[in-house]
Amino acid sequence: MSIFVDETTTVVVQGVSPTSQGLYHGLRNRDYGTKVVAGTNPRRGGEVIEGIPVFSTVADAVEETGATASFISVPPPFAAAAILEAAEAGISFIVCITEGIPAHDEARTYNRLVQEHPGTRLLGPNCPGIISPGKCNIGITSGDIALPGGPVGIVSRSGTLTYQALHELSQQGVGQTTCVGIGGDPVPGTNFIDCLAAFEEDPDTKAIMMIGEIGGSEEERAAEFIAANVTKPVVCYVAGVTAPPGRKMGHAGAIISGSKGTAKAKMEALSAAGAVVAENPTEAGERMVEIVKELG
């Protein structure tokens, strides 16, 4: 099993044209085996690009193909509208990788989804996407670094560290059920707790790797959740021990303000919650491999 997406997931890619990022990544996802069934472009409805039928709107695409998930990589000024369009069309799982969306757009869009489209889950924005190895890959993760068959579930706030985590495990022959990149923005559609809860429920996930970074209090909240609700072993890594306070480290959310949001505080909270806390991504991989071996 896996969480959020599997071999039955059908994907519509929003914003496809012969030169768009959406098409580039959509084709890579399709090459991986993902069921990419449609694309959208208001000016190209009716065309077929690289074998992908293009519709003017997401609603048309859903009506014609029954797509259940959408993939958004449109530029920041158009991302919020694209997310809402997908939700209004009845898409239940939206992956938005767009980086640089204004925080107010994110906050408004998140609250509109909660209020008007409670059946829709948004992953991102500013995330690498999600991969259930061997079944479905939506986003920009390189499929060949993932290994099907489980038993590890991965959830990460950082893109490239997500790949690093996959790589560390796959190289040791340890597979993954699903790897979710939740993104580093201030208002993520899906957070650590959503993923921890889903992994806890998934019978095939035997252990969870969680990768955090400085800023905000999501890791601390995840620690509380782990202490109260997670029975499976959790290995954590938090990036940014050497980050100076008051400076945004790339992600809009990655900033230490005052005494809050430091990597050290997060690591202590996770450790107190019973998680194994590693000093670097390689060590996190090694600790997880040990745990998986012990599980048998």
Partner: peptide, 17 residues
């Protein structure tokens, strides 16, 4: 020089370690 904020942060951390 790294790609991605998380990896860049982590790279700083590892150099420090």
């Amino acid at each position: 020089i790294a790609n991605g904020a998380g990896l860049a942060m982590s790279t700083c951390d590892v150099v420090n370690q």
